[in-house]
Amino acid sequence: MNLDIAEGEFFALLGPSGSGKTTCLRLIAGFEQPTSGSVVIFGEDATRVPPYRRPVNTVFQDYALFPHLNILDNVAYGLMVRGEKKAARRQASEEALSLVALAGFGGRKPSELSGGQRQRVALARALVLKPKVLLLDEPLGALDLKLREQMQTELKALQRRLGITFIFVTHDQGEALSMADRVAVFDRGHIQQIGAPQNVYDRPETPFVADFVGSSNVLPAHLVAQLIGETAPASLRPEQIHLTSADGKLSGKVIGSAFLGAATRLELDVEGNSLSVLLPKAASVPELDSTVHLTWDKDALHVMRGPDV
C-alpha cells in the first residue's frame, strides 16, 4: 500500500478491527518495523529510527498514563527525559494542561480523573513536545456518546489552532467523516480508497467502501447491466431511492421496516437481492409483503471500478 499524508492535515485511517489501520499507525510511530517498504517523515527516511527519535507523538487507546506519577509529571515526562530544566518543564506542562482545559489538575493522580479527563491529559502529554505529527489511536473509543461528540469538536478545533498533522485511527465512520480532511478506508490490510469524506461517501470505489461507509446498497453487476448496460457493481444510497407509483427503475417486495426516528428504513427484496431504502418521515410506509416501485436520480447510481472489483 502507498499512503501520502500532507502537512497540517487531519487524516483518518478508517476500517473494521483487524484491517491494518492500527498497524499502519504503529509503523509511523516506530513500534513496528516494516518487513519491506519505508516510512518517510517530512522527507527524512525514518524506517530504522527508534520511536524515541521520531518527530511524532501518540495518544494511546488506553491513554497509557503513568500511574505512579501525578498529572503534571505525566505531562512533563517527555520534557524530563529530554533534560529540560525543572522550571521550564513545569511552565510548559501547565500551559499544555490549560490548552486542554485541565489547568489546576496537575497535583492529582491519573486514577483520580474521569475517562474524558485522562484523554485530555494524554493529549496534553503528547502536545507539550510540539510534535510535527500527532498520532491518535481510537482516542475516543472509551468515552460515552455525549463526551465523544464533544471531544470530536474539540479535537478538530485544536488541530486547526495548532496547525499540526493529526493522524487518527477509528472504526467509527461517522467520526472519520465528520472530523477528517481526508480518509483512508482499510480492509484486510489494504487501502480500499483515499479521499475527502464527501468523495468517499458519494463515490465509493469498491463494494466494501460502499457498505462500510454509511451502509450503502451494493447492486450486483448483472443488475447494473440490466439498468444502464455496464457490467460492474454499483452503489446506491438508501436515502437517494424514492418510491414511485409505477414504472420505476426497479421493483421489490417489502420484507421489513424499522422506525429510526427521523426516518424509516425499509428492507426490500429485489430479484433475490436485499436493498434498503430510507423513507423521509412524511412519507407513508408501505405494508409488509406489498410490492413497491423504485426510482432515483441519474447521478445516484454510482458504478464502482475500484481495485477490489
Binding site: G30, P51, N57, F60, D62, A64, L65, V81, L129
Partner: peptide, 19 residues
C-alpha cells in the same frame, strides 16, 4: 503500552527502565 508511551515521549530504553 506504558513502555511504548515512554519511548514515544522520547525516553531511551534505559530511561524507560528507570522512570
Amino acid at each position: 503500552s506504558l513502555v511504548e508511551a515512554s519511548m514515544d515521549l522520547g525516553a531511551t530504553y534505559f530511561q524507560t527502565l528507570r522512570f
